[in-house]
Each structure stands twice: as C-alpha cells, then as structure tokens.
C-alpha cells in the first residue's frame, strides 16, 4: 500500500524525544502524512524498519556521545533531504550548558558509577558535523512548521520557515508587547519566529527557545532589560538557556557573565 511513496526516517541523538513526539502529536494531519509518505525508519512510531536510502530524514538531538559523529555520517549518506529538528539538533540544546563546565565534576555528583559515563567534550549541533538541508528550531519544534516542511517536501516547493523575530508573530496575532506594556523582559525581538509567539500570548516574556533570529541585536535588548531593572545574571541565564551554544546567544550570555 505504501510502496512507491517517499520514505521517511526519524533519528534520535541526545535529546528528550519531545521533537519526534511533535510528529506523533500532529493527530489528524499525521494520518494524512501517513497516507502520503512511507514511515520507513521511525522506532518511536513503528517497530518495522526498512532499509535506506531515505527521501526525508528528521534528526532530533545533539551530538554528545562517542560514536554519534560516525552514526550521523552514516545517516547523512543514506538521506536525500536531511532536516535537523529542535534546539538540541540545531544548537546543542539544553545539554550544551555543560560545554563551559567541568563535566567530570557533574558525573561524579550525578552518577553512582561515573566511570561508565563516556561523553564528547561538547554537545553540538548536527550541522556542525554534516551538511543539513533545513533546520527547524524550537524546544520543542512547532508541529505546524514540521507539517509545512513535509507538505513542501512532498510538493517540491520551498517550505515557509521565516527567520525574522517572534515580534512579527505577536503583532499578527494581535498580542500586546509585554515589554512595553508590562515591563517584562522578553527575548522575542532577538528570537526566531515559528512558535506562534506562545509565551507572549499568555502575557509572559519569550525565553528564546527558537534561538537567535536572522539579525539579533542582543546587546541592545540586554541594555533595555537592564533599564527595566533586570539583573545582569538573569540576562546571562536567559541567553544561556535552551540555545546557549547558538553563536549569538552564547556570545551575548558571555558578555553579561564577563561584566559581572
């Protein structure tokens, strides 16, 4: 029944599974997807695993453990169109917070037998190691962007994945700016759109889970946060959160850490 349809593979690296669950969370749209694409290698959805090559491959998770890079290269070799999904796969994710810390110390505290823990020096993005055709940001990703990607792929057109700020989505939604109206710190102006401005829709500041937008002025936003009475260390922690290893946020956080 599904023979001849494009083959989909979904792979996981260091991650929480939330992004691949976004695909299963697509509900009605998922049923349509299943009718249009062959789920060939997606252990979280089906035990059946078909051999590659695969037409569309989604990769979740950061490159973090020994052997990851080799496995990634194998996946790349058998994938026609490779999409890295989520903050882990596109920027190292929350676990990249360890990149500037002493991992040996962490493992001694956390694990009863730390000698079993073997990890790479840093948690990094998929694109740091292999060519990626498209990145979907977010922690987790937007299922709308995921479906849009699949639809665009099936119809041979470019997906509409904007790289501008979250503010665009806030204003289109008719949201009120929480910084201007409530004096709340919001990373929306420096964060890439795609989530639909979820947090500001609930009168909360954006915490940047979609990572830096196309031209983030992190310094100017940080200065405004200071004027609003937000502490330097809070600004540092906000930049060093889900996307701490994305260049713009890493550097911004370091700037506020260094000047403490």
């Amino acid at each position: 029944m599904t023979a001849g349809l494009p083959k989909l593979a979904v792979h996981k690296f260091a991650s929480c599974d939330g992004c691949q669950l976004s695909l299963l969370d697509c509900e009605d749209a998922l049923l349509d997807v299943v009718g249009a694409i062959q789920i060939a290698n997606f252990p979280e959805a089906s035990r059946e695993v078909l051999d590659g090559p695969y037409d569309l491959t989604l990769i979740e998770g950061a490159v973090s453990a020994p052997g990851d890079i080799e496995r990634l290269q194998e996946i790349r070799a058998e994938s026609k169109f490779l999409v890295s999904i989520g903050a882990c796969a596109t920027a190292g994710g929350i676990q990249a917070l360890r990149n500037t810390r002493d991992v040996d110390e962490f493992t001694r505290y956390v694990y009863a037998s730390p000698e079993y823990i073997d990890t790479l020096d840093k948690a990094t993005a998929v694109a740091d190691h292999v060519k990626v055709d498209l990145e979907l940001r977010g922690c987790p990703i937007s299922k709308h962007q995921l479906i849009e990607t699949v639809i665009a792929f099936l119809n041979g057109r470019a997906p509409i994945i904007p790289t501008y700020s979250v503010c665009m989505e806030c204003k289109r939604n008719g949201n009120t700016c929480v910084m201007v109206a409530h004096g709340v710190g919001c990373l929306g102006p420096v964060t890439q759109a795609g989530c639909g401005a979820i947090c500001p829709s609930f009168h909360r500041g954006c915490y940047g889970c979609f990572g830096p937008m196309e031209s983030p002025n992190t310094a100017a936003l940080g200065e405004r946060w200071l004027e609003l009475g937000i502490d330097r260390e809070v600004i540092r922690d906000q930049y060093h959160f889900f996307n701490s290893w994305a260049d713009a946020f890493r550097e911004a956080g370091e700037a506020y850490a260094a000047s403490e």
Partner: peptide, 30 residues
C-alpha cells in the same frame, strides 16, 4: 540604528505601513 533590534515592531504598529509578503500554501496532497 545602533540600538535597532530589527524586530519590525515599528512597522507592525504603524497605521500606514502596508508591506506584505505573498505566500502560496497547499495542503498535503496539493
């Protein structure tokens, strides 16, 4: 422009800013 966030808020609230993008959308099976 040193402090400009290029966030586009000014253009979104301006009552004369009219610029729009045209997007073509399809459903899954077109």
């Amino acid at each position: 422009a040193a402090t400009c966030l290029t966030c586009a808020n000014c253009t979104m609230v301006c009552p004369t800013c009219f610029c729009a993008a045209v997007e073509n959308r399809t459903n899954l099976d077109a």
